[in-house]
Write a protein that binds this DNA or RNA. Structure first.
Lengths: 151, 151
DNA sequence: GCTTCTTGCTTGAATGATTCAAGCTAAAAA
DNA sequence: TTTTTAGCTTGAATCATTCAAGCAAGAAGC
């Protein structure tokens, strides 16, 4: 994988604001890409694709397909596609929902739970955010939160 | 497009660090997704796909295919695919490179340059980063720069 | 000079993620 | 009860992306 060089500069004049903002978008995308690559690499170690790893990561407990799709920010049909693969490997089961007979409840098998543990451990190692101190991560969190919640 | 709710919390204990870091990754991805959606929306207004818009954005001057592929962080074959579309619409031309007869030099036509102007204008409007002040954007820039340059 | 290797670009096949439309069942509302 | 909405699945279609292969031309070696 190749990376275009990114140069740092602080803009002060107003007309340069747009330019700086665009570069900032590039930085966000760049970091997001690194995170995505990181996930893909670690997922591959466990014979998972990136979406499968994302699904597994979000399976903190029994969830419905709809809920999982929301967490994965994708369509339910896409979630079906991904979950089919995981179920085919025996990592989880579709149980009937206790109160809603339309819904499925996704429950990890023992094997699935074990694999999830390994995945979470792998994801934590050499994180793309490791270059930032705890305080910096908190600051970043705050800024991103503000940017996102602005709409 | 739907968005899973994101809750804010500040972690202090060490074992919670990993959790906070993962949530931070989610935030970065979330913002990146918003930026990508923003680009896609604005691109669609000009009958462009997101990759086409990205290519157009990166065409600041005459560049080779390889250089464009680097800027777009993709394979040259992918750049060929995208540039074919733009060339087919008469937005740019493949000129022979002045010194390297293997290479192509991508040059915007007048129409292409005009469309690029409109695109850049659209991209600047209601940016996903508009919720942050200039100082906050600078701070974010610094943090992202540090995170990315770490590796 | 002549090889060998590398680089720039393109083509075509393949993959993989994603979306959409359609349909089914069941819950919820009227 | 009837109608509408929600959860899930299937299948077709799309789109971005990658990979392998190949061609042409520059670069480096002898």
């Amino acid at each position: 994988m190749k990376w275009a060089p990114i140069t740092m500069a602080v803009m002060t004049t107003p007309e340069a604001h747009a330019i700086a903002e665009r570069r900032l978008c590039g930085l966000v995308n760049g970091l997001a890409r690194r995170i995505a690559d990181h996930v893909r690499d670690r997922a591959a170690m466990l014979d998972l694709t990136a979406p499968q790893a994302t699904a597994l990561r979000e399976l903190t407990g029994p969830v419905t397909m709809r809920e999982l799709a929301d967490r994965m920010a994708c369509e339910p049909s896409n979630a079906t596609f991904v979950i089919d693969k995981l179920e085919g490997r025996g990592l989880l089961e579709r149980h009937p929902h206790p109160t809603d007979r339309r819904a499925k409840q996704l429950v990890l098998t023992d094997e699935g739970a074990a694999l999830r543990e390994r995945l979470m451990e792998l994801l934590a190692r050499e994180s793309p955010l490791a270059g930032l101190s705890q305080e910096e991560q908190d600051a970043l969190h705050g800024l991103l939160d503000k940017a996102i919640s602005h709409t």
